[in-house]
Amino acid sequence: MEVIVKVDKQGRIILPKDVRRAIGVEGEMEMVCRVVGDRIILEKFSMEDIHKAFSELEEIAPSLELDTVKVEGEDKYVDREYALRKIGIRSIG
C-alpha cells in the first residue's frame, strides 16, 4: 500500500483510514517513530512485544546482562543503555 499524505505547518500528518486499518491502529495510541536514512518508520508501540523480544534475546545471548565491556580499538563502551539506543528503544518513555 502506498499513499501520499500532507504535512501541515506544525509538521503533523494524518494516517489515512485504510493505512490505520491495515496496521490495526484504533483510536488514540502510542507509536514508535524511527528515522532510518531518509525514511520514517512508524510502528505500533507495545510493551508486551518489547518484553517478549528481550526475553528471546536473553535466551539467545545471556551475556547481554553484562554492565560494560570495552570495545577494542575504540573509545566507546557498550552497556545496556547503549544497546537500547542501538535497537531504537532508548528514546521511548
Results as ranks from 00 to 15, higher is better:
27 G>C: 09
58 E>N: 04
92 I>M: 14
62 P>N: 07
72 E>V: 11
5 V>N: 09
9 K>D: 11
70 K>L: 10
29 M>W: 01
53 A>N: 11
19 V>E: 00
18 D>F: 08
3 V>Q: 10
39 R>P: 02
55 S>W: 02
1 M>W: 08
88 G>P: 01
47 M>Y: 12
22 A>I: 05
24 G>L: 03
16 P>H: 09
84 L>E: 09
60 I>P: 00
8 D>H: 07
91 S>E: 14
38 D>I: 07
89 I>F: 05
52 K>Q: 14
44 K>A: 02
70 K>A: 15
70 K>G: 11
83 A>S: 11
48 E>W: 02
57 L>S: 04
6 K>H: 08
84 L>P: 00
70 K>M: 13
89 I>K: 03
61 A>V: 12
5 V>M: 07
30 E>V: 01
48 E>R: 07
57 L>Q: 04
27 G>V: 06
75 D>Q: 07
73 G>I: 02
2 E>Y: 11
67 D>W: 05
57 L>M: 13
67 D>R: 11
46 S>G: 06
50 I>W: 02
39 R>E: 14
49 D>Q: 12
79 D>T: 04
69 V>R: 11
43 E>M: 06
66 L>G: 09
49 D>I: 00
26 E>F: 11
59 E>K: 14
30 E>I: 01
70 K>S: 15
74 E>A: 13
51 H>Q: 14
46 S>K: 03
23 I>F: 15
59 E>I: 01
32 V>R: 02
23 I>D: 00
14 I>W: 10
27 G>N: 07
45 F>G: 03
4 I>H: 01
38 D>F: 10
29 M>L: 13
28 E>R: 12
48 E>S: 08
39 R>F: 12
8 D>M: 00
80 R>I: 05
29 M>D: 09
13 I>G: 02
27 G>K: 08
42 L>V: 05
78 V>W: 01
53 A>T: 09
34 R>M: 02
47 M>F: 07
70 K>R: 15
52 K>T: 09
81 E>I: 05
48 E>C: 03
13 I>L: 04
3 V>E: 11
61 A>Y: 12
76 K>R: 14
71 V>E: 09
2 E>M: 13
46 S>V: 05
87 I>E: 07
85 R>M: 13
43 E>R: 02
1 M>N: 11
45 F>M: 06
27 G>P: 05
51 H>F: 14
30 E>H: 05
6 K>T: 10
76 K>S: 06
48 E>Q: 08
18 D>G: 04
35 V>D: 01
46 S>R: 02
78 V>M: 15
6 K>C: 01
4 I>N: 08
